[in-house]
Design a protein around this nucleic acid. Structure first.
Lengths: 139, 139
DNA sequence: TCCTAACTTGGACTTTGTCTAAGTCAACAC
DNA sequence: GTGTTGACTTAGACAAAGTCCAAGTTAGGA
């Protein structure tokens, strides 16, 4: 966490109270918050922080590779602070809950050269879909 | 294509000119159009068709399993008429181009029970990321 | 302590999608 | 063929998520 702020400073970030608060919010709960949820939590600590700054800061963190953007539905993007451990996502089709999961093997290995069409393939995102325990036993 | 319209009729669809045009647009080009692009192409054939109808029709086609919704970025959803052949997507990080691809093996098999957290897992979507031939060779 | 480029702000704006009330029409019965 | 009716379509208002901008503020080096 202080690591994060130090890393960012090392990359020429100006360390403002707004950026500190956004970083704290993301680091505090290892869940997948939307930009609006990050803003709501940030406002609790720094009431005058604006939405624009939260969007800017999240965008910068994504560019720097400190945070991942996750778009599992067509709605708001979610921000995943767990950027330094490769993982995929398991999403509940009922309630939208998201879990980080670690499948076996390298997903890229499953895509043969004949299926790459000349692309330089650099990564793969997997979204597993299903029903969580709460939604399985639901009404 | 006529198959599609007949299938839909069999499921109680009223066969309006608007729905026919949307189905034709999707069937005509096997690319991944946004709702607005579908609307633009539909308007060429039926100038008075409204955006709301295009959205309604696309939503119905998705519910019926005739078309897939693809959300590869946080922007507009795309609609994939290739719903009857299992496949995944390869997306160019440069220009956004999308290709259907067919990886080997069953992606679900890579997720062991210990990583399912009690979810009933029903599917997996893989988005491969990379640069297409055009974007690889510079600006 | 001062300066300045970088950062933040509020609000207008854009994009994408949903909703609603009123009007239209496909398909069925006759 | 004609009438009927509920499903379908329409225009436009609305909403959610995100971007942009000009003006004001400030972190951090000189």
């Amino acid at each position: 966490m202080n690591d994060l702020l130090e890393r960012l400073r090392g990359r020429g970030w100006r360390l403002t109270s707004q950026r500190r608060v956004v970083a704290e919010v993301l680091d505090g709960e290892h869940v997948h918050l939307t930009a609006d949820e990050v803003h709501a939590r940030a406002v609790e600590r720094l009431p005058e922080i604006s939405r624009a700054t939260v969007y800017n800061t999240l965008g910068e963190l994504v560019c720097l590779g400190e945070v991942l953007e996750v778009a599992t539905d067509g709605r708001a993007k979610r921000y995943d602070p767990n950027a330094h451990h490769a993982h995929q996502h398991l999403v509940c089709s009922g309630c939208g809950a998201i879990r980080d999961v670690h499948p076996q093997g390298d997903p890229l290995a499953a895509l043969p050269a004949s299926e790459r069409f000349g692309f330089v393939v650099s990564g793969a995102e997997i979204t597993y879909r299903g029903l969580c325990p709460d939604c399985t036993t639901g009404p």
